[in-house]
Design a binder for these strands. Structure first.
Lengths: 209, 209
DNA sequence: CTCCTGATCTTGACGCTGTCATGATCATTC
DNA sequence: GAATGATCATGACAGCGTCAAGATCAGGAG
């Protein structure tokens, strides 16, 4: 037995524990199901441990089935990352709507950024560079990332004291700051309790002033 | 032929193109040689493509030889990352020494951070989280990272206008800002030419004010 | 209805990976 | 000079991503 993988997925009539009691043959909604499986495995086992075969297994499908919906593993990951950017933009906007003035909105967008990263560490890692070189290759991904940044840019432009210089430069500065904070917290390089604070949100709230 | 790897390295008397015309059997300086090989491959092919077997091949040694000097692949990568943090701290200090006052020293340390990341993108990626979960496991790595941050902390503490609040919080803010800038540039999320600037150094210089 | 076509899913195979188990070689100490 | 521990090599294994080729199904044309 050189290869043959022993058992990659259950037979078409078994009930796998993970996600899907397979329909007879065609799945019907395999593409979104694969993205869901990937996200679940991502937060369970981390980005390094995420394999295309495991994603297919969890969706109750053969290891090659994903190739009918994604060009390769990176394309699947890019789709997951795209979804991540959309959610980031959405939660940022939601948080900003509860702020009284422009300054508070900018702060809220920053806190939202850090909170999102803390709540979805592996997804955040994937969103920024988890795909190695092919990071800027995917068009939908680029658009979603740009939209997410646009939220910060708009919030920054509304605060006169901040956007004194070139508005875009100010927005980039704000983005870089919250992004760096998110990354350092995410990787454990800094920890909220080292500063007597409970969680990432408290630290972000304290620093963004 | 199920396995047997065909040809992992040249025989003990061949001359591989890469790095080492092997001494007869014992290498003598294999540990640093492996770190050198890893760094070379890192910048040539990127972090994702770096395999322990390729590192061994380049050092002119069998695939199992590294295990006599490192517990596993992550331990090798941790050693490379540790070296990276030492160099980062060293180049930061070097740049700071050419600055006239405290404020300029802080700025210089920030520019040095971004320039280092731009000059060693894959190494920088490895230094921050390229090892997945085991990121905080290695003692030497933790110490080297702490030392690198200490450079920023010291520079920040010397600037009264900056360290008005809790000094450590101010230092973290400075770190987060330059780190985020380095990451965003590194991953291509922002590009200097989008702001009419030539390179990462120019952008960092512009923003750090 | 039958037949065909294209989409969807599966299985086989290949070379690559990290690493365990085991064997070979060497430098050093008794 | 023999023993021993450090160093290096080879065999083997399961898992990975993905190419190639076969099986199955749904829908429309005749």
């Amino acid at each position: 037995m050189t290869d043959s993988d022993i058992k990659d997925g259950p037979g078409p009539s078994a009930a796998p524990p993970g996600e899907a009691a397979r329909q007879p043959y065609h799945h019907g909604e395999l593409r979104p199901a694969l993205i869901r499986s990937a996200r679940a495995l991502l937060e369970e086992d981390g980005l390094e441990a995420l394999s295309l075969r495991a994603v297919a297994r969890r969706a109750g499908v053969s290891r090659q089935a994903p190739y009918h919906h994604f060009a390769d593993k990176h394309a699947l990951l890019a789709a997951v990352a795209t979804e991540g950017f959309r959610e980031l933009a959405a939660t940022s906007l939601a948080r900003m709507q509860q702020a009284p003035d422009a300054r508070a909105r900018l702060n809220a967008s920053g806190v939202a950024y850090v909170v999102f990263a803390a709540a979805n560490p592996s997804l955040f890692q994937l969103m920024f560079g988890g795909l190695g070189g092919r990071f800027n290759q995917d068009e939908a991904l680029n658009a979603a990332r740009k939209d997410a940044f646009a939220v910060i840019r708009a919030a920054s432009a509304d605060v006169p004291a901040v956007s004194r210089g070139t508005p875009d430069l100010s927005a980039v500065a704000a983005w870089a700051f919250v992004h760096g904070l998110a990354e350092l917290l995410n990787k454990g390089a800094i920890q909220p309790r080292d500063f007597g604070l409970a969680d990432a949100e408290a630290l972000a709230d304290q620093l963004i002033r």
